[in-house]
């Protein structure tokens, strides 16, 4: 809690040196792995495992062909997939948090719903694909519904858990000061449950991605999943590898964004946990 002292030059140097060292460390293993891949696949004559050089070589012509960036296959495909995931994920978030707060707040409702919800959570979501296809055909709504149906449960159940776990002392404090329902929701319930909501959100994100790919592979004419399926069907292996790489990057980037949001949103929680551990 003490005010930061003026940093001595030596410390600044050490700090930047540490930062640089960290960047080197972070890039070291990926660089080694890519190099190994590069040389190991360089002489590959197996059509199924093209040399990495070929994959990268094909990358611009496959993905960025066309006059402008906006109409390139890359922007179109990735845009479709990412927007699908984000819309489905957002819907699941809203439904999950609203229902979760309701169910978590009212004990009898929770007792009533929990066994059924536990069952739904236990159903591996991909298996619901054929059922949703029966109802919705193979249009855009299907793919979003698949994502919602997969992502909803972790968010919902973690929100319930989070709301239920809010410290009774805090609830008493809120009641004693006569906080109204709206202020209680935004000052107590949502922030109090937020660590669990983030946990659910993280689980939901990876399921949402899986459901997106499944939806697109099963029934889509656009998006990264269908691009992979098409390249596979036409034996364009190098293009398919590049599509898989792009899909992997989508996953990593979304997880990175999620992590950044979580880091900001839960700053208080990390400090709180640390103080609990240190103080006890």
């Amino acid at each position: 809690m003490s005010a930061p002292s003026t940093p001595a030059p030596a410390r600044v140097l050490a700090a930047t040196g540490g930062g640089l060292w960290r960047i080197v460390l972070a890039l070291l293993l990926p660089a080694v792995l890519v190099t190994v891949w590069w040389f190991a696949s360089a002489d590959s004559t197996d059509p199924q495992v093209p040399p990495l050089a070929t994959v990268l070589d094909k990358f611009p012509t496959v993905w960025f062909a066309g006059d402008d960036l906006g109409s390139s296959l890359f922007v179109e495909t990735v845009g479709q997939s990412v927007s699908r995931v984000l819309i489905g994920y957002a819907i699941a978030m809203v439904i999950g948090i609203v229902l979760g707060v309701l169910i978590g707040t009212f004990r009898p409702l929770r007792d009533f719903c929990e066994p059924v919800l536990e069952f739904f959570r236990a159903i591996p979501p991909p298996i619901l694909t054929p059922i949703l296809m029966l109802f919705m055909g193979i249009d855009h709504a299907l793919k979003i519904s698949l994502i919602v149906v997969g992502a909803l449960w972790p968010i919902l159940l973690n929100t319930i858990e989070g709301v239920r776990g809010i410290d009774p002392v805090l609830k008493d404090t809120a009641r004693a000061y006569g906080l109204g329902p709206v202020r209680r929701l935004f000052s107590l319930t949502l922030p109090g449950a937020s660590p669990q909501i983030y946990t659910g959100g993280r689980q939901a994100l990876s399921i949402a991605l899986i459901m997106m790919v499944i939806g697109e592979m099963f029934a889509a004419f656009d998006g990264i999943g269908s691009a992979i399926a098409q390249f596979q069907a036409t034996f364009s292996t190098a293009s398919m590898w590049s599509a898989v790489l792009i899909l992997g990057c989508i996953g990593s980037v979304l997880a990175l964004i999620f992590g950044a949001v979580e880091r900001v949103g839960l700053t208080w929680y990390r400090g709180y946990l640390r103080s609990q551990r240190g103080g006890a």
Binding site: V169, T173, Y177, S187, P191, W268, Y269, Q276
Partner: peptide, 27 residues
């Protein structure tokens, strides 16, 4: 107004000290 024994648990950990004091006034 109440002051409870469990100080560590009666303050909202996601709010700064100021916000904690201000919250009941807002209401």
């Amino acid at each position: 107004a109440v002051v409870l024994q469990e100080y560590g648990r009666s303050l909202f950990p996601w709010m700064t000290v100021e916000k904690n004091v201000e919250l009941p006034l807002k209401e």
